[in-house]
């Protein structure tokens, strides 16, 4: 669409700007202020310059938490994106079964984060949970509070359970937007199932997939409540994600300076990755 140049449009954006600025800019400024000081309370505080940044960047525990975080985000994207596309292709297109499928598939999306954690905590317990009990009866040693690998696998399974529906729903509606004529043309050409997917369906999905991947990356990088409820970060600190480090540091120990410095590093990482994604979306739309 050709847009007209009109700076009066700013008046329409102003309410959004004011509302978001209030909740975004003031806290962000405060975090920056924290990050250069050793804060005990509003009156007892010392300027320390960039010391916290140096400390945080060289802290091995945080470095490994950061690496784990990237590992986690990429793993779940690698599982959720293909699985979501697959589910979307399988879902019925019309009739009552389509509605039923939509409702059932979207169910996990609307469960509060800590309830998701609770559901999986119960489900995986060896004594009262179906999955934990079944695995135990089958003779598999499985214990998320003792074995780090089990804990990791469960958190990934939980995230796949919770968020694959988002990718599936986005893809489903993307697929619905393809006109029937395209498929008819493909049938006349005797195109294979794979060729239809590769040349008709996948191109239509690119845009929704970028949106889905962006949303999933941003949210999985900030994952907090679900693993916290499920494993409490353990065993040891094997499933302690960045958000949990930060919350413990800032709220638990009241180490505001280091927590703030680390938050800013964290924010800069998400900002850079998301900017690359965002620019990619915009450029791909411009080419069309």
């Amino acid at each position: 669409m050709i847009k007209t140049e009109n700076n009066k449009a700013w008046f329409l954006v102003l309410p959004v700007f004011a509302l978001v600025a209030f909740s975004a800019i003031i806290p962000l400024m405060t975090v920056v202020n924290y990050s250069v000081q050793d804060v005990f309370d509003a009156h007892t505080r010392y300027f320390v310059g960039t010391e916290w940044f140096t400390k945080m960047l060289n802290d091995p525990a945080l470095q490994s938490a950061l690496l784990k975080q990237f590992g986690f985000s990429f793993t779940i994207l690698l599982i959720e994106v293909p699985l979501g596309i697959g589910i979307a292709l399988l879902m019925p297109k019309r009739g009552w079964s389509a509605s039923l499928c939509l409702v059932l598939v979207s169910l996990p999306l609307l469960i509060p984060l800590n309830v998701v954690g609770t559901i999986w905590q119960i489900f995986t317990r060896g004594d009262i949970g179906l999955m934990g009990w079944t695995l135990r009866e089958m003779g598999v040693s499985y214990n998320i509070s003792r074995n780090a690998v089990d804990a990791w696998a469960t958190i990934i399974l939980m995230d796949v359970w919770h968020w694959t529906p988002l990718i599936a729903l986005l893809c489903y509606s993307g697929l619905r937007a393809i006109p029937e004529a395209y498929y008819q043309a493909a049938r006349i050409d005797r195109a294979s199932r794979w060729a239809v997917f590769r040349h008709i369906q996948l191109p239509k999905l690119t845009n929704v997939l970028i949106i889905g991947v962006l949303l999933r990356f941003m949210d999985s990088f900030m994952i907090y409540a679900e693993p916290f409820v499920l494993t409490g970060g353990g065993p040891g600190s094997s499933t302690t994600f960045l958000s949990q480090w930060l919350t413990t540091m800032a709220v638990g120990q009241f180490d505001l300076g280091p927590a703030a410095a680390f938050s800013l590093i964290y924010f800069l990482i998400i900002l850079a990755v998301s900017w690359v994604f965002y620019t990619a979306i915009m450029n791909s739309q411009k080419e069309k």
Partner: peptide, 27 residues
């Protein structure tokens, strides 16, 4: 409409979805 700083405004808005809530809890 096109207006001054529209693209940057849009990205700034989105960037707030990226700010980890854990960071902002105390402020």
């Amino acid at each position: 409409y096109k207006f001054l700083g529209d693209k940057h405004m849009f990205f700034w808005l989105l960037s707030n979805k990226m700010a980890p809530p854990a960071v902002f809890v105390l402020p």
